[in-house]
Amino acid sequence: MTTLIAIPARYASTRYPGKPLVPLRGPDGEKTLIRRSWEAAMAVRGVDRVVVATDDARIADHAGAFGAEVVMTSSDARNGTERCAEVAAKLPGFDVIVNLQGDAPLTPAWFVEDLVAGLTSDPQADIATPVLRCTGRAVAGFLADRRQGRVGGTTAVFGAQGRALYFSKEVIPYTGRDYAPDEPTPVFHHVGVYAYRPAALAAYPAWPIGPLETLEGLEQLRFLENGRHVLCVEVESRGREFWELNNPSDVAVIEAMLGRD
Rank of each mutant, 00 (worst) to 15 (best):
I59K: 13
R10G: 10
C134G: 04
R15E: 11
H62K: 06
V151R: 15
N247R: 14
R83I: 11
S13Y: 15
R58I: 12
V51A: 13
L33I: 01
T14L: 13
Y16Q: 12
T73I: 09
V50Q: 06
D182M: 03
L100W: 07
R15I: 10
L115P: 07
V171N: 00
R238E: 08
V52N: 08
A109H: 08
T129E: 03
A117T: 02
E244S: 08
V71W: 02
V251P: 06
T32G: 14
D48W: 06
A199W: 06
T175N: 09
E225V: 11
V70H: 04
V71A: 07
G26Q: 07
V230L: 06
E236G: 05
T73M: 03
P23C: 04
G149I: 13
L4V: 07
R133V: 04
S74G: 04
A89M: 09
T32K: 13
V193Q: 08
V233R: 00
A199I: 05
L132M: 04
F158T: 00
R25G: 13
T14A: 15
T135V: 01
A68N: 05
Q148H: 15
G29V: 07
I59F: 08
F158R: 00
T155E: 02
N99F: 00
T81C: 07
T175R: 02
T214V: 06
S249L: 14
D261M: 15
A6D: 12
R58T: 13
F66S: 10
F167V: 13
T129Q: 10
V253S: 05
D28V: 10
S75G: 13
V52S: 11
A77C: 15
S121G: 09
L4G: 09
G159T: 06
A63P: 06
A160C: 11
E241S: 08
F223G: 05
L231T: 02
S74N: 01
E216W: 06
G210T: 14
D114K: 05
Q148E: 15
G93D: 04
T81P: 06
